[in-house]
Amino acid sequence: MIPQVLLPLMLPAFALRATAAILRGPPLKDTVLLVSRVILRSLPVVVIICFFCGAMLTVQAAASLAPFGALRMSGLIVGFGGVREVFPLLAGGALASRTGAEIASQLQAMRVTRQVEALEMMGLDPLVLLVAPRLIACVVAGPVCVFAAMVSGLVGGQVIGQFQLGIDRSAMWATLLSAVGVGDLVVGLIKGVVLGFVVGVVACYEGSIVAEGGARGVGAAANRAVVRGMVLVCLSCLGLSALIYGRFL
């Protein structure tokens, strides 16, 4: 068995092997199907979560600013904080809880019912056949989800600003967008790719390792994939932000 001290190295080692598997030509059709499936399944969750989060941020910002008579500035806070931090983070969380859980439980169910061994017995490599397409799907879906999160978050802020706070429509848009630059979109793209990769690797890892057997093992794998995915999403969001925005402070 593997010594306890080496356990933290298992995930990076798996990430390397999975990345190498991508280069060995995963099946094209499966990959395309998975990419579209992951995007289609995650997007609604991302859109709903971020819409309400944008709305919530606006209410909160307005409540904090109203005493200073600066209600109209609430869009600025939402645009600035949302696009830079909150919406990408929530996109990662949504991806982890929708796709991460699904991938982990699917792969673990295949492992428990010996379907993975059946593939190996045919002389096929599960890493290339099962893991690589899922990892690609997550990496592609990451940025898509991040941009969708930004748009729906801003729309959520706009709807609340316009209809609930009664701020003028174009003024609300202007304040929402005033703190958003092209640089933020590039950062969003980078964050999306990294988050997708992190969620995908954790989910495939939790789906592939030998854990408790049977149906309980399937649930436990989904559980770990979500939680560990979310933790790594938060840590990498902080890391990226500190690295990128920290320089320009």
């Binding site: 169910a109 019912t113 010996r114 379907q115 061994e117 059946a118 190996e120 017995m121 002389g123 490599d125």
Partner: peptide, 22 residues
């Protein structure tokens, strides 16, 4: 690894619990 994969292509296996792709 690739030798092992090639070897397995010369074998067939019926698993106890079938292991059909669901």
């Amino acid at each position: 690894k690739h030798e092992l994969l090639r070897l397995r292509r010369r074998m067939g296996m019926l698993f106890q619990d079938n292991a059909l792709f669901g």
